[in-house]
Amino acid sequence: MKTPWRTFFRQNRGRMIAAVALVLFVAYAYNRNAQITEAVLASSLRQSIPLILGALCGLIGERSGIINIGIEGQMLMAAFVSFLVNVKTGSLILATIAGVLMGALMGWALAFMSVTLRIDQIIGGTVLNMIAFGLTGYFYQVGLATKGKFQPIAIPLLSKIPIIGPVFFQNPPLTYLTLVLIFVVHFFLYYTRWGLRTRAVGEHPRAADTLGIDVYRMRYMNVTLAGMLAGLAGAYLTLEAVGSFERMMTNGRGFVALAVMIFGKWDPLSAWGAALLFGFATALQTQLQFMGALQIPHQFIGMLPYLLTIIVLAGVGGRTRPPAAVGQPYVKE
């Protein structure tokens, strides 16, 4: 007789093995050098934040049938607006809100291009990216400086737990917000009417339309809301991670986020795992470089996240299934 447990183990064999291996590895590393282990893990989480936010943005869009390769541009514009607002007002909160709104505006623009104008979605995203590169380059002035950045807040009690405490519970506010948002998106996607409709619109818009769901409205709303997440990623880069703005500072994270989304099979929690993996690769690479353990030119180490993206895409490509209607403009009858 099959018990539910047995089915669970069978279905998640790969993940279970990975989880056990991860715990053993962390325990071993912690035993060897507690300080470095904590530092690398904390850095993995920090590196994963913009990636998971970008991936969630892409995921909500694709679940409703819109490919978004403009995440890079959304992040960059949001990072820039956050920077400007912080420079002008000195407020971190206002700057974050401005970044989030900018992300939403860019998301709306993508929806407008792909739903109303029916521009090929990949070209639409490219337009967003190029507009972001152009505008941030044009309006950026050297010499402006931000007024402070978000500081870590230790959560009482929880932050005292070894390993888990310093990694998860001694972070600045946007990191906490992101961690909460992952579960919020997961919940909304699978347990609410909105989520069901979103998935319906992404899988079979015609059927959804027949049932009275407004496909255009769903797509507009979702891509705009999702843009807020990319906007938050931009705000995070300026206000929490770096504390400043540089031209092209997103450095391809918006595209890596898409690989994270695909690797995570368009599922929020799996995507988080994928984002942590990418974050870990980056953190490990930085640490190795810092310790001088690798006699490899820094350019080769710098290639690692991009190589990993290609390998992951090549590895999972063809074995994953994107939402069925992704990329196709919907035309009402």
Binding site: N251, G252, F255, M303, Y306, I310, L313, G317
Partner: peptide, 16 residues
Amino acid sequence: YTGAHEVITTIMLNYI
């Protein structure tokens, strides 16, 4: 051979 979409792979290869 793997189905990896050229949009992402070519962008990654740009950085490489």
